[in-house]
Design a protein around this nucleic acid. Structure first.
Lengths: 217, 217, 217, 217
DNA sequence: GATGAATGAGAGTTCATTCAT
DNA sequence: CATGAATGAACTCTCATTCAT
């Protein structure tokens, strides 16, 4: 019934239902939009309340502080951003030859994350923007990356290097080049020049093509 | 005598000397550092004044509003960021065969911008972070890019495509891939993982190498 | 079954039983403790609710306002504080030679009120502290005193002056000296220096002794 | 020129002049009056500002928090309350036979403290009322008492016991009885029944008389 | 009767900005 | 020019109270 389902989907970790009341969703939705537009520090709780159609006090009933509200948005977004790498079956899929080539793997990751960013753009904006200012978020990001994303990514890269598809560049560099190719395409596409005319399919294909040409043995 | 020469160098457009008084430089330096650390909106003018060792009123003697202070930092930084492309002789240098290949050109641009970012990191941080929140800055950025950087960059790319070095990809895509390769290397190096151990020379070389492999005919 | 019997005893005027439900007693007990510790104005109803283990709404079901809750505690405490003087048979006891001397009378009053304060300390604290801030309480106190306590006390003092035990000091002064001797002993003992080592019996005896030496003919 | 001289006199420790600006004195005066009337917790800073005729922000320019404002009033008042006992020459005066009897000494202390309380009544009210709620104040009070007031008082009492004027009661009890006699007279006179008709001279004389009769050998 | 989510007025505090000195 | 006290609007957050369940 609720129109806020996208927020609910994004923030619901573990798939429990009924986790958020109608008012809470309105608050979260309003907060995400305003934080994305003006930044956390420049957004007042009274603006959020007004936009959400609730009393200001209601916000603080659900989130003890304004910062808690930010974290309630940003933390799940952070985890969802790297969700594929957190899934238990993810690496097995790769090694079970679900993807025969790194290029196939890339294509899957790119289109999956493209869809993710497109769907949850405001929340990702907030995460990205506030990362710079809040050390808790930054540390959380770094921990998730080094403990979960990096090791799995590294195994995958080595796998395809052993198979002879990828050149013997340092694994770290391959990972960095891959991630920044994806991230910077998405940043350009959605953050920097969202109004530019984009042929998404073609541009993504070109990005992968150029990257693979560079990484291939 | 002043220790603030880096700020002075960055902000001084057109090379006039003595443009800034000692106090003004202290204010600017303090502002850059605090804005970079906590963000514009989360930094108070009283903090800046304290850090700069001046009275609060002094800030407003030089900059009518807090926002003016931000713009005084961000606008010159923005122009300096793309300074090579603004220089009159820049394109001519390329066509006069100063750079025989796109790769040479790339290498020059990369190392030049690498040095620039390294030197003026805090100011660039501020520019980058506030770009998202202030439409004036964003518009200024877009105007400079479309009016100055893009046309020159496009001519250069076409030049090397005609010389047969670069593949016949769409010019826009080549530009985008080039810029994001550079920008995302610098972002990873200086913003995201500044504490990671980096072999800058090698990593930059690899980045160029991979990019060229991808772009080459 | 209830552990709150002391509150019940204190607040129950006229001896009706079953006057308070279990939840109500919990609320009253929590309120007394918090008011005593932090003061009425600095205690929030939500704190009381939490400490009492009831919902916030429940408090307002029993007491229309927070102030009503205070008065529900303070008014009975006020009456109990001077209860002996309110008892019908009290003066008759004195004149029926139950106490042959003012000193005996004093001794009875002192030990009785000592026990009372010791038992109901938190409630008395609240009464004492809020007396200063709430004119209703102050007026109530003054009315009770002038209408009930003072006249009876005066008759008693005159009685022992006529019997020749007490010097012919002004009755008001005798009353004041007696009450403040008692009150300030109890205040020192229980409020100001509760952690000091006290030999209660001896100190009370000394207080009475000194007071009687002063008052005696 | 200022009409706030009484506040200035009370709060000025060490006699430095020009310590407080005009606005600051207005704030302090308004705060003392309101705290005395309604209590610290029930007084809002906006009320104080209005009464003082300054902007609310001005209060926080001088006192970082509301509590700091309270302490700025209460701490000096606490020290002034026991000032005679803090004076270096105080004990010497006693032993140099400035006071030949404890009664003379008492008379001097009583009239001195009577004048003090009368002059600074509102501040003393605040001190007295908030003592119960703020452990910092309570601890400060206890430290000052045990370290300065008590030892000097004890020497004086022993001095007059040795001279044979005072009975051999425990020193602590003599001190307690003396202080509570004074304090409770002042409390009754100024706090509890300020509107009652008092013959101050006579009542003080009676209090001393009764006390001395009790304490004398 | 009991609950607790919701409220909105008002709390203490911060802040960009002004202006007399 | 530089200062910093003063401002008052706006901020985050708390609270007594209400009311649908």
């Amino acid at each position: 019934m609720s129109e806020h389902s996208w927020i609910q989907e994004l923030l619901q970790i573990g798939g429990k239902e009924g986790q958020f009341s109608e008012k809470q969703l309105k608050i979260l939705e309003a907060a995400v939009e305003m934080f994305a537009e003006k930044g956390y520090a420049a957004t007042s709780t009274s603006e959020i309340a007004k936009k959400a159609g609730v009393a200001e006090g209601t916000i603080f009933r659900h989130y003890k502080t304004k910062k808690d509200l930010l974290l309630a948005i940003v933390t799940p977004t952070l985890f969802q951003s790297v969700a594929p790498f957190l899934a238990k079956e993810f690496v097995r899929e790769v090694f079970d030859n679900e993807y025969e080539t790194y290029e196939q793997f890339l294509r899957a990751v790119f289109s999956n994350r493209y869809a993710f960013v497109k769907k949850y753009l405001p929340a990702i904006r907030v995460l990205w923007q506030e990362l710079a200012f809040h050390s808790e978020i930054k540390q959380c990001f770094q921990r998730v990356f080094t403990e979960h994303v990096y090791p799995k990514f590294a195994r995958i890269v080595r796998h395809f290097q052993e198979k002879g598809e990828l050149a013997e560049l340092p694994v770290d560099s391959v990972i960095r080049l891959t991630i920044t190719s994806l991230a910077s395409f998405l940043a350009a596409r959605f953050l920097l020049l969202p109004d530019h005319h984009w042929d998404d399919e073609a541009e993504m294909e070109r990005t992968i093509h150029v990257l693979m040409n560079g990484l291939r043995r």
